[in-house]
Design a binder for these strands. Sequence first.
RNA 1: GGCUGGGUGGCAGAGUGGUGAUGCAGCGGCCUGCAAAGCCGUCAACAGCGGUUCGAUUCCGCUCCUAGCCUCCA
Length: 464
Amino acid sequence: MLQIYNSLTRKKEPFTPIDPKNVRMYVCGMTVYDYCHIGHARVLVVFDVVNRYLREKFGQNSVTYIRNITDIDDKIIQRATENNESIESLTERFINEMNVDADKLGITRPDQEPKATLHMQDIIDMISILIDKGYAYQASNGDVYFEVKKFEGYGKLSGRNLDEDQAGARVEVEIAKKDAADFVLWKMAKDGEPAWDSPWGPGRPGWHIECSAMATKCLGNHFDIHGGGMDLKFPHHENEIAQSEASTGECFANVWMHNGHVMVDEEKMSKSLGNFFTVREVLKQYQPEVVRYFILTSHYRSPLNYTKNNLDNAKSALDRFYTALRDLHDTSAEHDYNYKESFNAALDDDFNTAEALAVLFEITRELNSLKANNNLEKAAHLGEVLRELGGMLGLLQDDAEQFLKGSGSGSDGLNDDAINQLIENRITAKKEKNWGEADRIREELSAQGIVLEDGAGGTSWRRG
RNA sequence: GGCUGGGUGGCAGAGUGGUGAUGCAGCGGCCUGCAAAGCCGUCAACAGCGGUUCGAUUCCGCUCCUAGCCUCCA
């Protein structure tokens, strides 16, 4: 039985889909004005695993996964102006770049990736309903606001009490608002800003409303899971709940999932702090699965420290798996599924990927034992199991030999031919029992990051 | 100030009211020309102080430290 920690109730709950034939999940995606950083990679990977596992549990075609794209907001306008580039060109460019990164990381594409600019009518419709129902008002400056006090359940997600919040503690309060907590639904366009027609005048949607409109449009008023980064819990998700439930009169999402942040030097990695590493930057040094593994080593709700040491550890761990998977022959026989049970039990427990990985290591140990005892048939079977379970996490899908011989995307230093030549020379030296020369060659390669392994079947190598 | 979370062995990181996480690193052994890889064995931890309990790292309280949110943010 799958259990998921629900941010709304602050406890783990058994997950029961509204419709097991169509489990519906919405995740807040990217605002597209820059490259994705490792924090974004974490959301992508975490919910990719959730998506994969839900399909494993409920059926490959019984899940609808929506991840939106915010392609209009203040930051985008600002960046486009700075670049002297049109908003369309900017956002299209970074949507493409996002997909490049996501594909490299082995992220399964969501079923739909709705964009705010293509859902203006849905957004306007929802705002109209909110005004009609008395939850929203147009202020003297023309902006339309959601009146927070009218929505009874406000604060239920983030656990905050409006009276205790220090409104305006860190940001100036817009004076046109009735209450400091009210938030904008429709923002009037200033000169030169992009604008869409609306009953309240030309303008653009506030940030929160697009997700409410697109989620209900794509998944219905009431769906199963809503996810996103921890930083979106308040105000973004709190506001989404208010808007959606006020307008539809129905429960919005049953389960709220929030992933923890990626940290750098004890601080959250974020664009505004400027302490971020882009996905492509990291992928120059580490293979995609290394990044994925790194993300999955800690529980999705915990903070994750971005350090060289942790990435290197991830690489070592994958080397261990792929070393075990190397030189296994193909097999089509029935698999041994003893491990699958404990692997699934780990993921059933609020997607405990760290524990699931521990199961993969158990398999690896047994697999290595079998290889050592020359029980190659059974070893091959276990190899299949290892790959299959790893695949649920999007891991162990590379060719073992290629993974071990590859470094980041650009492997500088010696090319394969040069390495093989040196290995040949060393084999000759070894035949002559010229150990000094053999060791010298091994040292030379080692200095280039190449590790040699003399086995029964000859010498193999990998990039360490 | 308010609201969420954390503090586990050298490092990373799960978990549990009373035996084992796991990976890397270390130590001993097997294997090897020597290594590497692998296998076997081994060391080692639960921030502090109280309380509940036959028993607490695990439950409760307090203290200290720390992260996130209360502004755009994944």
